[in-house]
Design a protein around this nucleic acid. Sequence first.
DNA 1: CGGTCATGTCGAAAATGTTTCGATGAGCTG
DNA 2: CAGCTCATCGAAACATTTTCGACATGACCG
Lengths: 340, 340
Amino acid sequence: MPSSPRRATLATVAASAGVSVATVSKVLNGRSDVSPATRSLVQSLLQQHDYVAPAPRREPPGLATVELQFDADLNAYSTEIIQGAVAAGAEAGIGIVVSIRSGTARTTAWARQLVAAGRRALIAVTGELTSGQPAALARARLPLVLIDPLNLPRTRVTSIGSTNFAGGLSATQHLLSLGHRRIAYIGGPPAAACNQARLHGYRAAMEAEGAPVLPGYVRSGHFRYHDGMASGAAVLDLPHAPTAIFAGCDEVAVGVMEAARARGLRIPEDLSIVGFDDTQIAQLTSPPLTTVRQPLREMGGVALRTALRLAAGEKVDSHHVELATELVVRGSTAPVPDRG
Amino acid sequence: MPSSPRRATLATVAASAGVSVATVSKVLNGRSDVSPATRSLVQSLLQQHDYVAPAPRREPPGLATVELQFDADLNAYSTEIIQGAVAAGAEAGIGIVVSIRSGTARTTAWARQLVAAGRRALIAVTGELTSGQPAALARARLPLVLIDPLNLPRTRVTSIGSTNFAGGLSATQHLLSLGHRRIAYIGGPPAAACNQARLHGYRAAMEAEGAPVLPGYVRSGHFRYHDGMASGAAVLDLPHAPTAIFAGCDEVAVGVMEAARARGLRIPEDLSIVGFDDTQIAQLTSPPLTTVRQPLREMGGVALRTALRLAAGEKVDSHHVELATELVVRGSTAPVPDRG
DNA sequence: CGGTCATGTCGAAAATGTTTCGATGAGCTG
DNA sequence: CAGCTCATCGAAACATTTTCGACATGACCG
């Protein structure tokens, strides 16, 4: 059949099917008043004629969305990221779709579905990527931005983080400057890049000061309250217990606080604690938590803007951006007690 | 202006603007061959006539979305709601777009924009509605579900809450059963329906037990840490200070805890505290907070499913649904100290 | 058996919105 | 002033959806 110069319309299909235009329209819209026989006839002819919906109507102004995906249940950290992304999205007229990663079946199909649903980009927070996923997303033309990725795959992906090394350094220096020498580090997953950087910052500060990292002083686990409590208990029960603990995140710090209280230790008189993140809970503890502020809202905002630039086809300046951390001194740190 | 029985069409607007249908169509589609004067004239008339795009065409294949709007910065409470809505959305194949309410300019235009962007419904959390807003949303055919609304407008809107009265009752009864008689209530905004219900539950329990509500024992403010600390301080400095405090939410409870600690009071030995919500922070305090669990995740999920039913044109069983609250006893409450 | 009624299919015509293309007139140029 | 260009606008053609009535069919009833 000679390809007609003009695109097929309902009229074309209707004529070749021997039905009215209205009937073809009904088939397209899944109306009920079409007999199954007619329906399937029309459908096959629609395919034969390569019928495609006409004029993609008015592109609605606010349709664009970006998917913000978390790896696990939301917590205080997630909340700050969401807040930042939502605020930046509002400025750009972009909606933020929050999702929680579940058993990822087929990445390729999933990515295509997201694109079809209008997502302009995907921001994955603290996620673990298999090596094939960036490729699948690229095939679907879905830009990817990572926030605090657990692992960095070999392929070039864009990621946002903060100066974890500097943060770990300054937290530890703060404790050292208060006279502490026996300082422990209770961190997160050993494989996580951000955890490693914080740990190295801690080690660097200790080494520079000539303070020894005693055996059992470096712990890992998850960035969760219960891990903090368990690791805190273990460290405090050491024969040479520390006088200060640097926790890998605020939630862990709160767990450490609880372990300390259970042992009758006063904070900060008997034990100093520094957290990391400066989420809302850092201000709710008693005493308020000294912590390394990670600009989580800004990170959410930067991730969104970066994602939009990628979606617009622009090049980004750098594959990895780190925002500055900052030590926030509150009430959970004090000079080392007289008798260590 | 009398609402016409039929929806406004391009022809309606064109007639009232004194231009052709084609011109109005061009304005809608942002074509260039319309003079600025005509364009703005038509645009204002489009608004006046509440023109909404007709037949939502064959729906795009992708996932539909529902807007989840918060009234202020996100906190632990918001996080639970988001989590519940996202989980329920994943099951239904619906994306959750989180947004934070900002200076709402023109509700009507905003609602239309949401519809155009593919939102199936709007869930507003703890928001304050002006009386015109439900009408504007209805005109745009955007179903509305409220979670814990501050005020209920006269018009019928669908809302989700929890049994605040029963929660206030059981929290207070718990304290009474521990022997407390001097119990204060530190709540949220006086006008908020949920706050009033909790307060009345408190009063009912006190009255049933014959325990007097002493002067100054009922405080209001916002549901925030600092309000809790300020009101807690005020109550604890009364000549007849309470032996127990029922706080209107967990964050306020944490503020009260801090005020108590600043006065050298031990919790729970010297002062019992009960919170409300059972957000994540209730488990992070020291001691862990006794609180009234509000099923926030379930509320988020129910709100989403209700919104989807409304969007599908189904009737909902009831305009207001309340999920059950439940007292969760942890470590912040204890029998009244020997010498009241 | 004939009449009536409900139901399922279908299309003509009306409605709605978009696009094309020619008409109009203002402003500019020579 | 003739002639040209260009922005603006609407009539008409188009594409699609919706409404409503027509028709056939079969069930049910007297």
